[in-house]
Design a protein around this nucleic acid. Structure first.
Lengths: 193, 193
DNA sequence: AAGACCATGTAACAGGTTACATGATTAT
DNA sequence: ATAATCATGTAACCTGTTACATGGTCTT
């Protein structure tokens, strides 16, 4: 069997260091912790847990609640070792695909008002994410002040804060720059010299 | 036929506003312009050009060099219209997957030196990208000072500059913070209370 | 009784990369 | 000669989302 490559496997292993969890539990935990920089769907989680089980990196026990089925997965020693090995590896970056910049790159074919709107919409999203990061930071500092993982959690939030602040600056700057740029000559309005 | 969703189609249409090009030409143009925020492989480009042709958004003519085959694609009126429609649509953002932050989130299971290395490696990459953006900015300002697309090109570079600068600050800050964090108690070294 | 939430899973599809196959042309 | 570059394309594979199917349990 080939070794999984996409990070999904190790994200699951990571959560299982917190203790035994079901696929459903993990999905919920992701939404409450790393959703700002990572996501997984059930379509990834359940099949991957099965593969990790076959590999011996996790093991499961049937733990039904009442008559309802439930599988609790736990990390094995081999799984923990694999997680630690992976953590030490250089973090890979995927080839970026930023649709906003792609549109901006070809924005000559766009009217000035749509151009503005594009950037303003992006800024609104950045600002709303930033507010979320701020709120989570406060909540973590208040409720988990002595959790030994807190410093690491806070750095991931700080990443989002600094990044989004900088990109908000970029939005302001860009709106100004493009406003002071001479009106576009589009294909259809260009006159012969 | 379903409308393509992933941005690839419109990236190709965008380049064809520059004039007729082959798939090979487009791939090269991507590498020389938008590779910092977008990428396409031949496996995407050639089949997509065929689909765009069937859709009537591009048309092609055989334009062999010597005996070697070559297809030159050009934008049709319908294609230009579709591009402009798409440009005005809100830019979509994909669910992020930042492997560095994922590792950092679970970094308690990692030694302090590997932790440092992870962040330092990331910083090196950020700095090298930043240097590239600076160099390209200078080159563009010098060689294409009066190109009507220049303002748009520069904003995409500015995006990278501001973003990477902020994340470099984050690297410094994080290295300091984590160094002043008490030594990790890992699973294996934790003693019973 | 209704609706929200718990819980597991699959199938179909979409998006994308990598590796391969093929062969011509140009520069050294 | 030989290596680099031009040029087109496909097949296999991996990754990931969405939609669906199923049914139990808890709260109001």
């Amino acid at each position: 069997m080939k070794s999984p490559q996409g990070g999904t496997a190790h994200a699951l292993l990571g959560f299982l260091t917190w203790g035994p969890m079901s696929g459903y539990d993990i999905k919920k935990a992701i939404g409450e912790s790393i959703s700002n920089f990572w996501s997984e769907s059930y379509g990834q989680i359940y099949p991957m847990l099965k593969r990790l089980d076959q590999r011996g990196w996790v093991a499961h026990t049937e733990a039904p609640t009442g008559r309802r089925g439930r599988k609790l997965y736990r990390l094995t020693a081999a799984g923990r070792q694999e997680l630690e090995r992976w953590l030490g590896e250089k973090a890979r970056t995927r080839p970026p695909r930023n649709e906003l910049l792609l549109k901006l790159f070809f924005a000559r074919s766009l009217g000035p008002s749509e151009r503005r709107r594009l950037i303003e919409e992006y800024g609104i999203q950045l600002a709303s994410e930033l507010a979320t990061y701020d709120a989570i930071t406060e909540r973590l500092n208040a409720k988990h002040a002595d959790h030994e993982d807190l410093p690491f959690w806070l750095t991931t939030l700080r990443y989002g804060q600094l990044g989004n602040q900088a990109l908000l600056t970029w939005c302001d700057e860009t709106l100004e720059t493009l406003d002071s740029t001479p009106a576009t000559r589009t294909h259809s309005t260009r006159r012969p010299r």
